[in-house]
Design a protein around this nucleic acid. Structure first.
Lengths: 119, 119
DNA sequence: CAGTATCCAAAAGGATACTG
DNA sequence: CAGTATCCTTTTGGATACTG
């Protein structure tokens, strides 16, 4: 029988100590949201991503990719060519995460005029 | 007739200069995601939110609420009681934004064990 | 109760320049 | 091409302490 600690191993993002807080932090930020969206339609190279994510620096893009790779959300593949070609691709897990993120991007693009800042 | 600049006024989150980049930044972060989720079921007071969002400091909670209020995503209402009662409530716009965010929270809670960090 | 004010440490991010 | 290294500025966030 299943032990009573892990049960179905579902997390609670409202619990400070739950590991899913960290996962939420990895996904719920601007650059991760944009990277995952850019990879939805298929593998992309570093340079392609840098162009699509207008304004991102190579340092930040690299950091973001590493964090997502470390969570099994995407894979990094090096092809033995000259010069080397490197492709990033969403894993099955990454594709799952991409759905709510796509909905969020779509909502933002549609409703931006209704959420104008009034400081 | 409509002017040809605003058209349907849909934004593009991949464009660096698009105002929706800022809106994405407001929504796509850990604390906003949790605040909006906590308000989904109805109005909440500051203290209640502070308890639900385990580990958040009053400063950060206050900042997050102000940013969301400034985007018309929630309202702040002060009731003339002693001591004063203050309630935060999602606007219609905020409820719209809360859907993809809820899906994201749910996905995170369900898949946290499959996205364990491998540094 | 509902915040604000302070102080500080840590992380994020931008700009380049440089390398295998 | 695909990053890494460096430098520096800005933001974020935690911890308290304090106030109307």
């Amino acid at each position: 029988m299943l032990d009573n600690i892990s049960k179905d191993a579902r997390g609670n993002v409202y619990a400070a100590m739950c590991p899913c807080r960290d996962l939420l932090d990895v996904l719920a930020n601007k650059w991760s949201t944009l990277v995952i969206g850019a990879l939805e339609s298929g593998p992309q190279r570093f340079g392609q991503l840098k162009v699509r994510l207008q304004g991102v620096s190579p340092k930040v893009l690299s950091q973001t990719l590493k964090r997502l790779e470390g969570r099994n959300l995407l894979t990094r593949t090096v092809y033995a060519e000259v010069p080397a070609r490197v492709e990033y691709e969403l894993t099955a897990l990454g594709h799952g995460a991409s759905r709510p993120l796509k909905d969020l991007r779509d909502w933002v693009e549609t409703n931006v005029t209704r959420a104008e800042p009034r400081p």
